[in-house]
Design a protein around this nucleic acid. Structure first.
Length: 253
DNA sequence: AACGAAACCAACCGCAAACGC
DNA sequence: GGCGTTTGCGGTTGGTTTCGT
């Protein structure tokens, strides 16, 4: 697309059950003009009320598309450019702990979006771990037959994600839904799952901070799903929303 | 230079939770 | 509490770019 990433803005495809084309909405890559309209409007009116935003801003896009474009690309806090080795290390650590909870992972990496991290994981880190003989979902060693050798391709080609990958219950288990369900995390190798108890916000924060700074797992700090929810954040410095549940809308804050 | 394969990544979809009445 | 609407998330798609032959 032509917009800020330099790619061509070409209108194209797209599949069969569009939510936007129903109402005559435009789909596909954003143009520079559309980006400008969206940025200008949000500067004036602020984020939120995505459903009505396109109409108010004069865009022929659905609200979802506007939100996505803003969150993943147009926000000033979004950092462009390659993932650094430090960021990569952090992503690995956080993924080991949290699994495919991209928004939560992104929330701890300033300027990176969930979509970007998800893409980076699927195209780089997943393969890297496989080459090292590590299961990218469980972070456990693979058996010898499954180790990806240099130059070998991940089976499944362009479908890097395992079906139901989010539902496996090995060592990084995250129950679906929010509620009061607990997250059970084992990061200590091949031992049985560690079922952590509940604890509170400050501990979660320090836990994640220790994750960033050092190996947190020596500390045996337990982590619960409810804490992850509580730490939904709209960090000014952090590009993406990182709630597990759903954030309060801006007008509610 | 031409072609095909692989890699990359923006954007889409479906779903579930939160919200508001 | 029920119900419709809105928002946000994770998984997936497919067009474009890059790489290899």
């Amino acid at each position: 697309m032509t917009s800020s990433n330099g790619k061509k803005a070409v209108s194209k495809k797209i599949s069969t059950t569009p939510c936007c084309t129903k109402m005559g909405m435009k789909r596909g890559p954003w143009t520079v003009e559309e980006d400008e309209i969206l940025v200008d409007f949000i500067k004036k009116e602020g984020e939120g009320r995505w459903r009505s935003l396109p109409k108010r801003a004069g865009l022929l896009r659905c609200g979802k598309s506007c939100r996505l474009r803003w969150m993943n690309y147009l926000r000033p806090s979004v950092k462009r450019g390659g993932i650094t080795s430090d960021e990569e290390d952090l992503i690995l650590r956080l993924h080991r702990l949290l699994g495919n909870r991209w928004s939560l992972i992104a929330g701890r990496i300033p300027g990176r979006t969930d979509n970007e991290i998800k893409n980076y994981w699927n195209t780089h880190l997943r393969k890297k771990l496989l080459r090292q003989g590590i299961d990218p979902q469980t972070h456990k060693p693979l058996d010898a037959n499954n180790i990806l050798k240099p130059g070998e391709e991940v089976s499944g080609g362009k479908k890097p994600l395992e079906p139901n990958s989010s539902s496996h219950t090995d060592d990084t288990t995250v129950n679906s839904g929010n509620g009061a369900s607990k997250i059970s995390v084992s990061v200590f190798g091949d031992e049985d799952n560690e079922e952590f108890g509940f604890f509170y916000d400050d501990k979660f924060s320090s836990f994640l901070n220790s994750l960033i700074n050092d190996d947190p797992f020596d500390s045996n700090i337990p982590i619960s799903e409810s804490m992850l929810q509580t730490h939904s954040c709209k960090d000014e410095n952090v590009g993406t929303s990182c709630s597990l549940g759903h954030d309060k809308r801006p007008e509610d804050i």
